[in-house]
Design a protein around this nucleic acid. Structure first.
Lengths: 352, 352
DNA sequence: CGCTATGGCGAAATCGTCTGATCAATCAAG
DNA sequence: CTTGATTGATCAGACGATTTCGCCATAGCG
């Protein structure tokens, strides 16, 4: 049925252990024998059984991926395919494969992770989000299993290896950018408050306002789901304000799409009536109507670096916990935020 | 170090075999013993080692995913995350996990697949594309390993289980739609000619033209990569024609994005100067400028159904090879193709 | 009372690979 | 010719589960 190491051994007239050493390219085997065994393997079409190997070896060559609970929803946001690209590129370069479990609830995700870890199905884990009070991270930390977080972890971040954008800085920069364009009534739409991204970007936003001497007003801060629908709902709320904002910082491109289409539906012009900037600079940002000004955060790089760190941890099995990689970002200015010359200037004048 | 079945056995005062039977919920074990063993497992935090289990069992609970060679490029097209969503949903429902290898060249992909299969790493495989002369499908067929193709396979399709859209019909329908809007000079932009999708959609297009008594002109048919850049290049070519087309059928939304932004850059209005329709109806289609008329093909459903078929094949290990599932599609009309009342009518008049 | 079902469980043989200990052979040195 | 090192290959367990037998009570039956 299956061709095993014994078949190869028999065919090459050696012991199974010899074949095994040939596979591992052990120096204790003579060149001649190696060649003989190799050609036997070739001839029989032999491929080692991965489970037997992992069992003996205590190493699978694969990496576990943990998505947020509703992985199936999550995949709708281009962030994930893109980070996956980065991960898969690096993983492939080093001969690792990827292993995904998905779960609908947090408990399901957790039990999926436990299975991966305790079941020794993977050598390490990448957590693709960072949420407050997250059980998965807590668990991984306890078990001292190699893992890396994409995003800034909560709690004792210094002991966890993670890869992140400087979201705080980015939030500050985009807000300042809007300020420089003349905006004074700047709102913020974020995703779930439990997510580190949301918090960091919002804090950056608030800091920028304070630096500009503008009070941070709760009515100008809305939260929503990380999808277009969320964005749509949030922007409606914001426009209920007596003095509706003239600009809005949106924490995610997909939400921003919802925001701009809602604004258009309401007959508001972008950027003339409301300027919009957002984060991630996913593919669509360039092709929306109008094209989105967005922070390029190099999602691919996040995935790539995360994988890099993980593989490091796995191989030096004296894991250098607490490594931190910050991937640089920059603002890509497109039409959705307006130019200095345009309407924004007027706003500035009328405000001063 | 690791908690094994023996530890549990000792703790519960039974033999390892009993523990194993409890896990499998064998009826030959008394209720009392089951409970005792279960609480021991609980207490010790036992999780079976997956490799040991697979080794003894000859079954992993996981499904292998095969992406086109440049998986890393591929992931940029929203088609894949979406089909992944469908797959992952169904897989998760049935307790399967997903396993991905990626490769840059075709050979790498093939050897990845061989490893999965011969190494018994997965119970079955889903091939996420259908290309002419594809080695992977050929290999899988030879080895009689359970697999399913998303897309219409080449060669002896009747012996392969696959899930597909009726791309031929869809191609015909959209072309006819453009015809009915009054267009007579209709072009086609497709992806790689080796792909089944491209061929089917193009054939449908050609059929519709013939049915309408319009000769199929090679100058009106362009090919490109499945990405925006490809679309951009292709449309430039088409516009070189002496009589440039007034409408174009684009085989993929992402390409269509490239097409429309190129057209805009060239100062052409959509749909007034050139109407555009495309396929897949991915998320962005709705949010582009102008929104794309596109064929909704239920990508999620493709993934879901494919997984369904595969699991069927795996469990009834008398695999009903050659099953075929066609997922229905429908046209979603948006601005990019124009309305009957508009310019299209004029074209009709001036043409007749 | 003796014999056979049967329910409940254990012993031991896989599954396919790796690896530390061991052995055989070769060769140089004494 | 013996000895000791060196090299090359084998042996005999692990690794952690599953599973086929088969054993031992107990119960049922005549």
């Amino acid at each position: 049925m299956q061709i095993t190491i014994k078949d190869v051994a028999k065919h090459a007239n050696v012991a199974p252990s010899t074949v095994s050493r040939v596979i591992a390219n052990s120096p204790r085997i003579s060149q001649k024998t190696k060649e003989r065994v190799r050609s036997s393997m070739e001839e029989l079409g032999y491929h080692p059984n991965i489970h037997a190997r992992s069992l003996a070896n205590r190493s699978t060559q694969s990496i576990g991926l943990v998505m947020p609970s509703a992985a199936t929803k999550t995949l709708q946001n281009p962030f994930f395919p893109e980070v996956l690209r980065g991960i898969s590129t690096k993983a492939h370069q080093n001969g690792y494969s990827l292993y995904m479990t998905t779960g609908v609830t947090e408990e399901e995700v957790l039990s999926g992770v436990i299975e991966m870890v305790q079941g020794r199905r993977v050598d390490g884990v990448i957590v693709l989000y960072s949420r407050e009070d997250d059980q998965v991270v807590q668990y991984l930390r306890q078990t001292k299993f190699p893992f890396v977080v994409v995003g800034k972890p909560f709690g004792d971040a210094s002991s966890i290896t993670y890869v992140d954008t400087d979201n705080y800085l980015a939030g500050r920069e985009v807000t300042k950018h809007l300020y420089n364009l003349g905006h004074r009534r700047i709102a913020f739409i974020g995703g779930s408050d439990k997510l580190a991204v949301t918090q960091d970007r919002r804090n950056g936003y608030a800091t920028a306002l304070m630096e500009a001497g503008i009070p941070v007003c709760e009515d100008y801060i809305a939260r929503a789901e990380f999808m277009t629908k969320g964005g749509a709902k949030a922007v409606r709320e914001l426009l209920q304000n007596e003095e509706p904002p003239t600009a809005v910082v949106v924490s995610d491109d997909m939400m921003a799409l919802g925001v701009i289409s809602t604004l258009s539906e309401m007959g508001l012009k972008i950027p003339e009536d409301v300027a919009v900037v957002s984060f991630n600079n996913v593919y669509i940002a360039e092709h929306s109507n109008p094209p989105l000004t967005s922070v390029e955060i190099n999602i691919f790089g996040l995935g790539f670096e995360a994988t890099n760190c993980l593989i490091e941890q796995i191989s030096d099995n004296a894991p250098p916990y607490g490594k931190r990689v910050i991937v640089p970002h920059y603002l890509v200015v497109r039409q959705s935020c307006g130019q200095k010359k345009s309407k924004a200037t007027e706003t500035l004048e009328s405000n001063s």
